[in-house]
């Protein structure tokens, strides 16, 4: 399990406007590109100092490729990161104010306390 790496994906996509659009339009291709190019970049050190050991589990990769917010929540991905990115990608598809956020909440309705642990 690599919650950190899932979070790193959400974090690095969310803060780049071009990547937000790319991930919305082509999730599978964006994940493949990210794992090759962006994921191994250790933020805070020079770009050529690559991290050599991080990887996603198969189910994590699939959740990201399918925009599966419910699976991401179940894995303990940081809910603020997922929500923020989902607002950026999908709020535009709803006409009612907070329509996306309420739909998102309803999709998670089966989760009871305690929620999946988000500690990394």
């Amino acid at each position: 399990m690599s919650k950190y790496y899932v979070n790193k994906f959400l974090f690095t996509i969310d803060r780049d406007p071009a990547l937000v659009e790319r991930y919305r339009d082509d999730p599978k291709g964006t994940v493949a590109w990210w794992l090759e190019e962006e994921g191994p970049r250790n933020l805070g050190v020079a770009g050529f100092e690559r991290t050599t050991w991080l990887s996603l589990e198969e189910d994590e990769r699939e959740a990201l490729e399918k925009h599966d917010k419910v699976a991401l929540f179940a894995m303990g991905a940081h809910p603020f990161l997922t929500l923020t990115l989902w607002i950026a990608m999908f709020e535009r598809d709803f006409t009612e104010p907070l329509g996306m956020q309420l739909d998102y909440a309803a999709a998670l309705a089966d989760f009871q306390l305690p929620y999946p642990d988000i500690t990394t």
């Binding site: 940081h78 809910p79 603020f80 956020q101 998102y104 909440a105 998670l108 989760f111």
Partner: peptide
């Protein structure tokens, strides 16, 4: 609550 089932009530 943010990013969970009880958000935006």
């Amino acid at each position: 609550e943010l990013g969970g089932p009880r958000q935006f009530g």
